[in-house]
Design a protein around this nucleic acid. Sequence first.
DNA 1: AACTGCCAGCTGCTATAGCAGTTGTCCATG
DNA 2: CATGGACAACTGCTATAGCAGCTGGCAGTT
Lengths: 231, 231
Amino acid sequence: MSAGTIPVEPLAEEETLSLGERAYRRLRDGIVQGTLRPGSRISERSMAQALGISAQPVREALRRLEHDGMVVTLPRRGTVVAEIGPERLAELGRIRAALEGVAAALAAERMSGEDLAELAAIVRSMRGATAAADAEALAELNERFHAILQGATGNLFLVKSLEALRAYDDLGRLRALGSTPKDMPKALREHASILAALKTRDPALAEARMRHHVLRSLTTNGVLAAPRQGR
Amino acid sequence: MSAGTIPVEPLAEEETLSLGERAYRRLRDGIVQGTLRPGSRISERSMAQALGISAQPVREALRRLEHDGMVVTLPRRGTVVAEIGPERLAELGRIRAALEGVAAALAAERMSGEDLAELAAIVRSMRGATAAADAEALAELNERFHAILQGATGNLFLVKSLEALRAYDDLGRLRALGSTPKDMPKALREHASILAALKTRDPALAEARMRHHVLRSLTTNGVLAAPRQGR
DNA sequence: AACTGCCAGCTGCTATAGCAGTTGTCCATG
DNA sequence: CATGGACAACTGCTATAGCAGCTGGCAGTT
């Protein structure tokens, strides 16, 4: 590595995932899409045979799902898909709003200039996509916005918790945050205001704005009900 | 189950834990107590042999620890104990404050009358223990207070996340929240005020007070620094 | 001496087999 | 008919063995 840099891209970070990871995603998708309905019993052996793999990866996946609250397993009894009603979804949404708020606060303190610039670029792209009413592009940009912000915190616990919560997005037939056409301008303004708070390194302001943004978004998407206690 | 309830205590809830659970606690304690220092490499096989068990439970424990942020494992490379500096502890403390706040909000909405009465009894006991300056009793009561409140939310994800965060308590040679003698009266007042908010079914107020309580407690214990941005 | 390729020794990961509880059914018993 | 106990068929849990990838060092070549 003395001479100039080698002109090749690094390999894709996850060309082949572990069986446990694949089983986890498979089961998770099955649950949120309704294929595996609440109350369904999931046997390690049966599911392993159905997936064509061994029982260990399935077990590992079930443990993770249990941590996520999607299944509940009684020792030596069995594992069943948990009931995830609207009220539970609302709770998880409020938890998510709180965590994303903390992430914004931490990001306001630690975030690098490059990350800030990237967020600014994303917000600019959002402006165009909003004008074009491109819902798909907005969903993608929104995902990147939050991902960069969360990654900037450098806190793995926070990132993983939010990742787990994000898995619930596909449940109530809602796709991604801020994708409904009517609230696109709102979401754009909110993202811009969050970015402004990050630029001024104001943790409290960034947190309040992020939290409000997530709560508002979940409300317009029907996950949360009335604007009872917000902020 | 027709006649009166059977006059026997249920079996001790965890007379014999699974090996995976025991390995998890063992390793977790080793990390927070400093026996397993940051950077230490943990091999599934070696650790299994050291604990006198198989490799699977150890692997399961490592996965959980990774989720908690205490270890980080690179696929096919190895698992090492994560570095947990003061800044990370502070982050986790802020996350915890936010989550306990949400728990208080949810509890204010859902909590039953019996649970409220139990919390009231605990606060009364706290009053006595504070007068007697009984730190140990206060720590115990404090733990029960938060446990009951969190359990009243009925949200497993929330409970498990807070449980994971609680594991970090033993790290910076601090034992439990609110155990330092000087802030006993403060903690007592805060618990009482939280209880009051719960009684009036005010989620926003309960959340704000709980969050302030946790942040204040972590601050006086040295986990958090100046009262920069609170509330 | 500097570089390249090979290879033993790790590592996490997966498969197979078997243990130990739990449950529901069926038959013997009151 | 009602009741209780034993057995079979599950379940999750654990142990053992072996696979696949990565690392570091040792030799062989230039």
